[in-house]
Measured scan of single mutants.
Amino acid sequence: MASDGVVVEIGKVTGSVGTTVEIPVYFRGVPSKGIANCDFVFRYDPNVLEIIGIDPGDIIVDPNPTKSFDTAIYPDRKIIVFLFAEDSGTGAYAITKDGVFAKIRATVKSSAPGYITFDEVGGFADNDLVEQKVSFIDGGVNVGNATPTKGATPTNTATPTK
Rank of each mutant, 00 (worst) to 15 (best):
T153A: 10
E86R: 00
A85H: 06
S135R: 10
P65R: 13
G140L: 12
P148W: 03
I104D: 01
F40I: 02
Y26C: 11
I95D: 04
P24C: 06
T71A: 02
D4Q: 09
V25L: 10
A152F: 10
T117Q: 04
E22Q: 11
A92K: 08
A158N: 12
N37H: 01
F40S: 02
R77E: 03
D138E: 05
K150N: 11
V41I: 03
P46A: 09
P113N: 07
G122P: 00
V41H: 00
P65Y: 12
T155E: 07
G34C: 02
G139C: 09
A94E: 07
G99A: 09
Y74Q: 00
I104V: 08
N145A: 12
A158E: 11
K33P: 04
A106R: 00
A152T: 11
T19G: 07
G5R: 11
A36Y: 00
K150C: 12
P154S: 11
V143I: 14
V30I: 13
D126K: 01
A72I: 00
V61A: 11
S16A: 12
T149V: 11
K150H: 07
P113A: 07
L129Q: 02
A112F: 03
T14W: 01
D128H: 07
D4M: 03
D98L: 11
E120S: 04
G139K: 05
V7R: 07
F27S: 08
V100G: 05
I59Q: 13
R43L: 09
I116L: 05
I116W: 02
G144L: 12
T96E: 13
L49D: 02
A72R: 01
D45F: 12
K33R: 07
N145S: 09
S68K: 04
I116D: 01
D58R: 12
T153Y: 06
K12A: 07
S3Y: 07
L129F: 15
L83I: 00
P46I: 08
V81Y: 01
V81L: 01
T71F: 02
S88Y: 13
R77M: 02
T90P: 01
V61K: 14
P24S: 05
I10S: 05
Q132K: 08
D58S: 10
V8K: 01
A106G: 14
N47A: 05
Y74I: 00
P56M: 02
V48N: 08
I95N: 09
G34E: 04
D128N: 04
N64E: 15
P154A: 09
D126E: 01
V130T: 07
V21S: 06
G57V: 03
D87C: 15
F27R: 00
V141D: 12
S16R: 13
Q132C: 08
E9G: 11
Y93C: 12
V8L: 03
I23V: 05
A146Y: 09
I95H: 03
D62S: 15
R43H: 05
K150W: 15
N47K: 05
T157D: 11
Y44G: 11
A146V: 13
K109G: 08
P148C: 08
V25M: 01
D126W: 00
R105E: 05
N127A: 02
T20G: 06
V108D: 08
D138I: 05
T20Q: 03
D4A: 06
A85T: 07
A158P: 11
I137T: 11
V13Q: 03
A92H: 11
E86T: 00
P160R: 12
A152G: 12
V8W: 01
G151C: 10
S135M: 03
P113K: 12
Y44N: 04
I52V: 06
D87F: 14
G99D: 13
S32E: 15
S111A: 08
P113F: 05
T155S: 12
V61N: 15
D126P: 00
T20M: 07
G99K: 12
G114Y: 05
T155C: 11
I10E: 05
V100A: 11
F84E: 06
D119S: 08
N64F: 05
S88K: 03
K33I: 15
D138H: 10
D58T: 08
A36V: 06
V100S: 13
N47H: 07
I137Y: 13
T19Q: 04
K67A: 11
T14Q: 11
V48Y: 03
D70Y: 15
I59R: 14
F27C: 01
V108Y: 13
F27I: 04
Y44K: 01
N127V: 02
R77H: 04
I60W: 09
Y44P: 02
G53P: 11
G144Q: 08
D76R: 00
S110D: 11
D87T: 15
V141E: 13
P160V: 12
E9K: 09
G29T: 12
F124C: 02
G89W: 15
I60H: 12
S111M: 03
G99W: 09
A152L: 12
G53C: 12
T147Y: 13
G122F: 00
E120G: 03
F84M: 11
G18L: 08
G29Y: 08
F82S: 03
D55I: 06
N64K: 13
G99I: 09
V130N: 06
G151H: 07
V21E: 14
T117D: 07
V7F: 08
I80H: 10
E50K: 15
A158Q: 13
V141A: 12
A158W: 13
V6T: 07
G34N: 06
G89L: 03
F136G: 13
T19S: 10
I73W: 04
T90Y: 15
N37V: 01
N127F: 02
T161H: 10
T153C: 15
G18H: 10
I52P: 06
G91M: 15
K97H: 10
V134G: 02
T96P: 10
K97W: 15
I116R: 01
K67V: 09
G15Q: 11
V61F: 10
F82H: 09
I51M: 02
P65V: 09
D126I: 00
E86M: 01
K67D: 06
E131N: 07
T157P: 12
G15Y: 09
P31R: 10
E120K: 01
V13L: 04
N142F: 07
K67T: 14
S3M: 04
S135L: 11
P65W: 15
E120T: 02
V130W: 09
V143Q: 14
F82W: 13
V8C: 15
S68D: 06
V141T: 12
I137L: 13
T20L: 06
A125N: 01
P75E: 04
P24V: 03
I54Q: 02
P113L: 11
T14Y: 05
D76A: 04
V81D: 01
P63M: 12
Y115F: 03
I35R: 00
F124R: 00
V61W: 15
E50N: 11
F69T: 09
L49T: 03
G89K: 00
K33L: 07
G99Y: 10
T155F: 09
P154L: 10
G18F: 04
I79P: 00
T155M: 11
G99E: 12
I10D: 13
S110L: 12
D87M: 15
F124A: 00
Y44M: 09
I52W: 03
N145K: 14
D138F: 06
G122E: 00
V8P: 05
V100W: 04
E86V: 00
T90H: 08
A106I: 08
Y115Q: 09
D138L: 09
N156M: 06
D45K: 13
Y93I: 09
K67G: 13
G18C: 06
T149Y: 09
D128M: 05
I116C: 08
V7S: 10
P63T: 13
A106D: 01
V17H: 09
T71Q: 02
S135N: 14
I73C: 07
F118G: 06
I73A: 01
I137P: 07
V130I: 10
T71H: 04
I23G: 11
I79M: 12
D138R: 10
K133T: 08
D4C: 02
E22C: 09
N142M: 09
T159V: 11
V100Y: 04
K78D: 15
F101Q: 11
I80G: 07
D98G: 06
I10N: 12
T161Q: 12
Y26W: 01
P31D: 07
V100C: 07
Y74P: 00
V130G: 08
A94G: 13
R28T: 08
G29D: 04
C38S: 08
V8R: 00
D4P: 07
K133M: 02
K109I: 09
T107P: 12
A94V: 05
A125S: 02
A106P: 07
